[in-house]
């Protein structure tokens, strides 16, 4: 999640204030680096003095051999410089984030409203997570609890606020820790789009079928059942659709082992 945020932040077009803050932070970082370098330089200079003293009696060696003390000093200086750099970078990032708190997406109000409706009309804990998928045309994305999914789906199709009558796509995914069914729906009249995730347990995967609500879910759910092994209670005809009826296992699962290793 934090990776994602970082990437998003980097990609955002900078406002003038943001740029200024970045420049300032960079300047600070530069200063910090220079200070660290100067410190390291001091350390080196002092060791050189010591070396000069130590080798006064002997012939001056061509290449200076570092004493333990010297080494330690160098390592310390380098560590300090590294720490200073890291701190400067952190500060720069913090400054950038502070200067321009991420502007909420234009779809944020719609997402908030959707959550509110689902919470009041279905259940308080119906929505587990939600975010705006910015790369995907700011798509409002919600994760809905499995036990409330069917009621939510009915609401999504029939409620005045949603009217998502067109279910574009149903996909399943095996996330190794859990299974997930993903619905992309849109309202033909308002063109508002939503993406719904429904998580399910990996050992006994099961998600309520929405075929009674959207006919188009029928074959899509059969395909997911066939390839991922997710059961859809309430489906009128849950059979394999792609693989043959006597196939063993569900090929799109991450732990799937083909029966015939030659294939």
């Amino acid at each position: 999640m934090s990776d994602e945020q970082e990437v998003k932040r980097e990609r955002k077009i900078m406002t003038p204030e943001e740029r200024e803050a970045k420049i300032k932070a960079a300047a600070e970082a530069r200063a910090a680096r220079e200070a660290a370098k100067a410190q390291a330089g001091d350390a080196e200079a002092s060791t050189e003095d010591a070396a000069a003293e130590g080798t006064a009696a002997e012939a001056k060696p061509e290449r200076k051999i570092l004493t333990d003390e010297e080494k330690e000093a160098k390592v310390k200086a380098a560590a300090e410089a590294r720490a200073a750099r890291a701190k400067a970078k952190e500060e720069a990032e913090a400054a950038a984030a502070e200067a321009a708190p991420k502007e909420p997406s234009y779809n944020q109000p719609r997402l908030d409203r959707a959550i509110e409706i689902l919470k009041t009309k279905v259940a308080v804990d119906a929505v587990e997570e939600s975010y705006i998928n910015e790369n995907n045309s700011h798509l409002p994305t919600l994760t809905i609890k499995g036990e409330h999914w069917y009621t939510c789906a009915e609401l999504l199709k029939h409620d005045e606020a949603f009217q998502c009558d067109y279910l574009r796509n149903v996909s399943g995914a095996d996330h190794e820790t859990h299974m997930e069914v993903v619905y992309h729906m849109v309202s033909i009249s308002t063109q508002h789009e939503y993406c719904i995730h429904v998580k399910t347990d990996r050992e006994q995967p099961s998600v309520a079928s929405v075929t009674p609500i959207w006919q188009t879910a029928n074959w899509n759910e059969r395909e997911i059942y066939d390839l991922l092994g997710i059961a859809f209670p309430g489906h009128p005809d849950l059979r394999r659709i792609m693989m043959s009826d006597d196939w063993v296992g569900h090929p799109l699962r991450k732990d799937y082992v083909p029966l015939d290793s030659e294939v």
Partner: peptide
């Protein structure tokens, strides 16, 4: 692609062809 997911679709001669990708970076 950065970690995340996307559903892109276009109008093919036969209708809406879509591509749903889950990326882990």
């Amino acid at each position: 692609p950065p970690a995340g997911e996307i559903y892109a679709r276009i109008e093919s001669p036969r209708g809406e062809i879509g591509c749903y990708i889950v990326s882990k970076g």
